[in-house]
């Protein structure tokens, strides 16, 4: 009796999740259709025949999309590195020492996560215009790090809190300085946190749109999120192409989610629930 009710829940669950994910299914199906097939009425629920034409044509065959993907990769990797370099010592410092103004610092990180991106993008455009930093990787990396850094500190600080102070002290007695105690004793403990931060920072920059839109005016500097947005502006949108590019943009997120789900979900909800 109980067993069959549990299975009934499974069936219901599959129906609910299936209905919920229709949009994702529709993206994939549309991306595999032939151009003429998109305008079939009623729409076909399966691509017949399925083709990778949209992928070979408007992803691999489009210099603009490829450049967007390259730009996003560069910006994402640089954002990840800078974020880790700044967040690791900061999270350690906040966890290990009772520094003054620690509350103010944590508040700064919290508020930074809550303000609308346009509030920073607007002045940044003016500041970067004067510094000649519009349309530069450096500008976009700085902007993306301002989003990634607070989350990174939030994720990493609890790891360093688990390192007993005595262990660090013992290392110091053995002749380690503060930096090498951090480097040799505390850092290894935080490796899962570092993976989370790396994944979340990269994916955050990869999908970021407001800064990407505001801080680039030249096409060759646009990240793929802006390139993708541009594809739908044209009259008579070729939706199979748009969905193929969308699927490629979503791919790293799907992969990370599939193989590193623990880190991704843990990281994002940690940022949401802890100060």
């Amino acid at each position: 009796m109980k067993g069959s009710r549990a299975w009934l829940s499974t069936v219901l669950g599959v129906v609910v999740a299936g209905a919920y994910l229709v949009p994702v299914y529709w993206m994939v199906v549309t991306s595999l259709k032939e151009p003429g097939d998109i305008f079939a009425t009623p729409p076909r629920l399966l691509p017949a025949p399925a083709t990778l034409g949209a992928y070979t044509g408007s992803v691999l065959g489009s210099p603009g999309v490829l450049r967007g993907l390259a730009n996003s990769t560069i910006i994402g990797l640089a954002t990840t590195l800078v974020t880790l370099a700044l967040a690791l010592p900061a999270a350690y410092g906040l966890a290990r020492f009772r520094i003054r103004f620690a509350n103010a610092v944590l508040l700064l990180f919290l508020v930074a996560q809550m303000i609308p991106a346009i509030n920073v993008a607007l002045p940044m455009f003016v500041i970067f215009s004067r510094l000649d930093m519009v349309n530069t990787y450096a500008g976009l990396v700085l902007a993306n790090c301002s989003l990634a850094l607070p989350l990174a500190v939030t994720v990493l600080r609890p790891y360093f809190l688990t390192v007993p102070g005595e262990v660090v002290e013992a290392a110091r007695v053995d002749g380690c300085g503060h930096w090498s105690a951090f480097w040799r004793v505390a850092l290894p403990v935080s490796v899962p946190g570092m993976v989370t931060v790396a994944v979340v920072s990269f994916l955050g920059a990869w999908g970021e749109f407001v800064f990407a839109l505001s801080l680039t005016t030249r096409e060759e500097m646009q990240p793929v999120s802006v390139v993708l947005a541009g594809l739908t502006n044209a009259f008579g949108t070729r939706w199979n192409d748009v969905m193929a590019v969308s699927a490629v943009v979503a791919l790293p997120i799907f992969l990370a989610f599939l193989f590193l789900q623990r880190f991704v979900v843990g990281g994002l909800t940690a940022g949401a629930t802890k100060g």
Partner: peptide, 17 residues
């Protein structure tokens, strides 16, 4: 996990869909 896919999808992608 399947339901969470909707949340992790970049908004540029879901808006287009």
């Amino acid at each position: 996990s399947a339901l969470l896919v909707a949340w992790v999808l970049p908004s540029v992608v879901s808006a287009n869909i």
